[in-house]
Computed example of a mutant assay.
Amino acid sequence: MRFLLCSAQALERLTNQTGRLLSWFTWAMVLLQSGVVVLRHGFNSGSIALQESVVYLHGAAFMLGLAYALQTDAHVRVDVFYRRMSLRGKAWVNTTGYLVFLLPICAFLLISSWPFAVSSWSVYEGSANAGGLPGVFLLKSLIPLSSLTLALAGLAQFLRALMQLMASERLELTPLSSAKAVLKQAEGVEA
């Protein structure tokens, strides 16, 4: 159980750090887009590279932000039944959902997007626009990278739900007097 907790915490730290980095991407995107508007309307000029950098930052913030959204529970959840479930029921739904749906979809995305990114890297694909950024291959690499980071965040959430199920089973198997001790222990581990 300790190993599961340490693994989940390490994966969550990685996701949190990625989320913090992506918040700076959003600020940079706002500043660059403001620069594009000022150049176009104030000085009657523009920069394709500047416009494409906004697109690159937006793609990075969106694709890599999926894992952070999952971890912070900011994703869309249809919880007509979920919100009325017990903690154990929610843990079963989460464990099943991560194992049956999220992780296989992430594996499919990773496997199917890998050749797409590799072929882009093989020619160091650049922008089709004159004056554009030369790193389209980096943008295309976000697809397999985002599926990998989402899978890692999903694995951390799966481990959390699994630990919750294991703790609730212990509570059911122990007498009432020791159930409080197990609960305190589980709360101490979670904190």
Rank of each mutant, 00 (worst) to 15 (best):
A107V: 15
M85L: 15
E172I: 08
A91D: 00
G59V: 04
L173P: 01
W92R: 15
S122L: 12
D79G: 14
A181T: 14
Q71W: 11
Q164T: 14
V100N: 03
Q185Y: 11
A74V: 04
L142Y: 01
D73T: 04
Y82E: 03
K180R: 08
S127H: 08
A107S: 08
T149H: 06
V118L: 12
F158M: 12
L110Y: 09
L103M: 01
M85N: 03
Q157M: 13
W121N: 06
D79N: 14
G132D: 03
E169M: 09
P134E: 00
L171R: 11
H75V: 15
G46H: 12
A69Q: 04
L152P: 03
Q185C: 05
E169H: 12
T96R: 09
L110H: 06
G46D: 11
G135A: 10
E187H: 11
L150H: 03
V80H: 10
V80A: 07
L176C: 06
K184C: 05
R77G: 05
P104G: 00
L173M: 11
Q71M: 13
S113R: 06
S120W: 04
V123K: 15
F116V: 11
Y82W: 06
Y98N: 13
Y56W: 13
Q71D: 10
T95I: 02
V123P: 03
I111F: 11
T149Q: 07
S53V: 07
P134D: 00
A161W: 01
V78C: 00
T149G: 02
K184F: 09
R88K: 09
A107H: 03
L159N: 05
E125G: 09
E169N: 10
S86N: 00
F137M: 01
S113T: 12
L142W: 02
G89E: 12
A151D: 01
A156Q: 08
A61S: 09
W121T: 07
K140N: 11
L173A: 13
K140G: 06
R84C: 03
L171E: 15
T95M: 12
S168R: 09
P134Q: 00
Y98A: 07
S47A: 04
L145C: 10
A67W: 10
R88E: 14
A49I: 01
T96K: 06
C106H: 02
F62R: 07
D73I: 02
A181D: 11
V182D: 08
F108L: 15
Q71I: 04
A130F: 08
P134N: 03
L110Q: 06
A167D: 15
S53M: 13
I111L: 15
V76R: 09
F116I: 11
S113N: 13
E125T: 10
V100T: 10
E169S: 09
A74K: 12
A117W: 12
I105K: 00
E187C: 08
L139V: 10
S141Q: 05
T149M: 12
L103N: 00
V118C: 03
S146Q: 03
R88V: 07
S146V: 05
L103I: 06
A153T: 08
L133K: 14
E187S: 08
A49F: 05
K140S: 05
A179S: 14
L183C: 06
L66I: 05
I111Y: 14
F137I: 04
L50W: 06
L139A: 14
Y56N: 07
L133E: 02
L103Q: 00
S53A: 14
M63I: 06
G97I: 04
Q157F: 01
C106Q: 01
A128W: 13
A181K: 15
